[in-house]
């Protein structure tokens, strides 16, 4: 059962399956699983390759560049901590699905721009941002000029 501290931003519950991903992020790298049998990349991290069911999974760094598949302007975030942020800053969250250039899709947040600046197809690049009140980083995205 997951218990939550509603005053803090949600953090991942890291397991042996996805530790390398979060270690990468906290070293300013975006690394994703690569199947050593069939060479397929996949995200999110899993116990097996979704194509060949192989268990030999390595990690490959990706460029962190991609395009917006879709996005939503969140005025009512689920997490109370994000809700407080939206209320205090008056700025909604831009939550997006991003297709990375390597052909994998990732959900994240687009930051440092106005909601009206984002379009389906907009080019974005990953950044690594500390979660406030922690020394833990999560990957977010910025619009590429």
């Amino acid at each position: 059962m997951v218990t939550e501290d509603f005053t803090k931003k949600p953090l991942p519950a890291i397991t042996d399956i996805d530790r390398e991903f979060w270690d990468g992020v906290n070293n300013n790298k975006l690394v994703v699983q690569k199947c050593l049998d069939c060479n397929t990349l996949q995200f999110f991290p899993r116990p097996v390759c979704v194509h060949c069911f192989g268990e030999k999974l390595g990690w490959q760094e990706v460029k962190g560049t991609g395009k917006v598949y879709s996005f939503t302007i969140v005025t009512v975030p689920r997490s109370p901590a994000f809700r407080k942020q939206v209320e205090q800053t008056g700025t909604p969250i831009i939550f997006a699905a991003i297709d990375l250039d390597e052909g994998i899709r990732m959900m994240s947040q687009i930051v440092d721009c106005k909601p009206g600046d984002v379009q389906i197809g907009s080019k974005v690049k990953a950044i690594f941002e500390l979660v406030e009140g922690t020394d833990f980083k999560v990957p977010k995205f910025r619009l590429e000029k």
Binding site: K9, P12, S79, F95, M107
Partner: peptide, 19 residues
């Protein structure tokens, strides 16, 4: 928990909004 909630989504409303 690990790949959606840390990014400030608005629950199912946001996932359906993307679609």
């Amino acid at each position: 928990v690990n790949y959606i909630e840390p990014f400030g989504y608005g629950g199912p409303n946001s996932l359906f909004a993307l679609t």
